[in-house]
Amino acid sequence: MAAPILQVKDLKTQFFTDDGVVKAVNGVSFDLYPGETLGIVGESGCGKSVTALSILRLVQEPGRIVNGQILFKGDDLLELSNEEMRELRGKDIAMIFQDPLSSLNPVLKVGFQVEEAMFAHDRVNKKNALSRAIELLKQVRIPAASSRVKDYPHQFSGGMRQRVMIAMGLANKPSILIADEPTTALDVTVQAQILELLRDLNRDTRTAIIMITHNMGVVAGLCQRVIVMYAGQIVEEGPVHQIFHNPQHPYTWSLLRSIPRLDSDRHDRLLSIEGLPPDLISPPRGCKFNPRCQFRIDRCLREDPPLLDVGPDQRAACWVTMDRALKHKEPAVGG
């Protein structure tokens, strides 16, 4: 396998609020390889968005990155000056958000905003800029792109705006595109189109994608590898097939069992994950998931389990799984 393009090492991001220190991201490490699609899933408040913002150093006060390294092509982004970081944002690593309307300037024409995204880094010939902007809008399959560059954001539908955001993200051919819940605000048929677009762009441009979502279906359709986060930590990580067919962390398992499936038998009981996500100011002792876990053993209440190999390329942080893996001398496989 090629060298990772992005390595996150022991990232800790905390928010210093009046009520205490919120440990939003608490020791997250992972690698991203060139051209791959990596999904980061979890409930709201699990730290997946803050992880993404940390990579681009866009965490707002009172949040601060307090520990870790973020190596992009070998350079630690946390060591860069603000100026160097600004250079890199949008050029090497681009990000798109859930709400494309608030990310676009309502009083500027869409074409101009796409051009601006290009000018921010490359010295593009002014004459070529417009045709390049149109080309980008065509690439994200906006119909009648050459006339729509003159339109304003409010004249676009939600799905079309998200396409514009993707076009702006791709303007400088970044090597990584971080998408934070890009389809959550969209209807399913539009979501399907955007996902298809992202899939094709990944295939054609080899841009690596980090897809942050709470929707397991979105991950299943788009990602090659999956990271499951809970309470600011990675609880499981592995290839998409293993995560879905052979989850090794009770949280992953519960997540999969809690969503109704279009192809499942009707009236199958859904297993909702009872209880609240943990208070990130004073999280529970031991495994952070233990208060909601139906498989917990004594050890879960005392010690925080490390993220260890449980299968080929698959890692999980769970004492129960580990116990069983040791007993059987090989990773548990089941269905």
Binding site: V188, T189, Q191, A192, L195, N215, M216, G217, V218, V219, A220, G221, V240, H241, F244, H245, L256, I259, R261, L262, D263
Partner: peptide
């Protein structure tokens, strides 16, 4: 259009 949480089916 509705994604099914199963990579093989998807």
């Amino acid at each position: 259009s509705i994604p099914i949480p199963d990579p093989d089916i998807q």
